[in-house]
């Protein structure tokens, strides 16, 4: 009897170990199947070593001769990011509320959510290329691209924070006979405001990085300069631009986390 039970236990243990092994096997086979798709050629890193070394050497020393212009272009990039984010915040407030299940009815929430999904699914760069066709080359196309994409992102974040509110204060306001707009104004907004601000600052920070990239397709700012310097194999200038980008990004990173910590 006890023998039987112990063999059952061993079997159970074996089955258990097979279950834990299964995900590992799945992941390994997935990686194997995509090896070719991703065109992984590790040997090339070593075979082309001389070329790589030459390429890397081109970046040093960085060429700072045009730094005034880089700073000016960085200012344009920051302007694009700021306006893109600001317009997105304005759009995301109503859109976020309309895609929150505890605010709007399902027949509003679902279409608005799908629209926001679409805006998020399409990269800023794609939007930038489309807007360049519509409004011409330059920063404005970048602003529009960031606005549209960020609206989708912020609306989702805003909606999620609205759905997570404590419903009790809201019921307290509803009990006084106040309208739904009052519930939003006095029960929902006070609860989510600090989160919303924190999301908006974070998105501004990441929009600065995005603004550099949308610049590369012609939507103005430092991205254009970077793109041109790489295209013309002027890697010393690229290095200077990249350094400015890294400095600006880290500076904003620090400022934004400082601000967000101050809020929450």
């Amino acid at each position: 009897m006890s023998e039987l039970r112990s063999s059952e236990a061993v079997l159970a243990h074996r089955r258990h170990s097979l279950y834990t092994l299964l995900p590992v096997l799945i992941i390994l086979s997935l990686l194997a199947a995509t090896w070719r798709g991703a065109d992984i050629r590790p040997m090339d890193l070593f075979q082309g070593q001389d070329g790589m070394r030459e390429f890397a050497r081109g970046f040093f020393p960085p060429d700072y001769s045009e730094w005034r212009q880089y700073v000016h272009e960085m200012y344009i990039t920051l302007s694009i990011a700021l306006w893109g984010t600001l317009l997105a915040i304005l759009a995301a407030i109503p859109l976020g509320l309309l895609s929150a299940q505890n605010v709007a009815p399902a027949w509003v929430v679902q279409p608005v959510r799908r629209l926001m999904d679409t805006l998020r699914a399409i990269n800023e760069m794609v939007f930038a290329m489309l807007f360049i066709v519509a409004v011409g080359l330059g920063p404005f196309a970048g602003v529009l691209a960031l606005w549209v994409h960020t609206s989708g992102v912020l609306a989702k974040l805003f909606a999620e924070s609205v759905e997570a509110i404590d419903p009790r204060p809201r019921e307290g306001i509803r009990a006084t006979g106040a309208a739904q707009i009052d519930e939003i104004r006095y029960a929902i907004i006070p609860q989510v405001l600090s989160l919303w601000i924190s999301f908006a600052i974070y998105r501004f920070e990441s929009n600065v990085r995005s603004a550099m990239v949308v610049g590369m397709v012609g939507a103005g700012g430092i991205g254009v300069m970077l793109h041109e310097s790489i295209q013309s194999f002027n890697f010393a200038q690229s290095a200077a631009i990249l350094l400015i980008i890294v400095l600006t990004s880290s500076f904003l990173d620090i400022c934004s986390s400082f601000l967000r910590n101050g809020i929450s």
Partner: peptide
């Protein structure tokens, strides 16, 4: 909502807006 104007409600958890 207009009827609720006549009805005050006090809750166990007070339901004030904390902020």
């Amino acid at each position: 909502r207009s009827i609720r104007r006549d009805v005050g409600f006090v809750f166990q958890q007070f339901n004030l807006v904390g902020r």
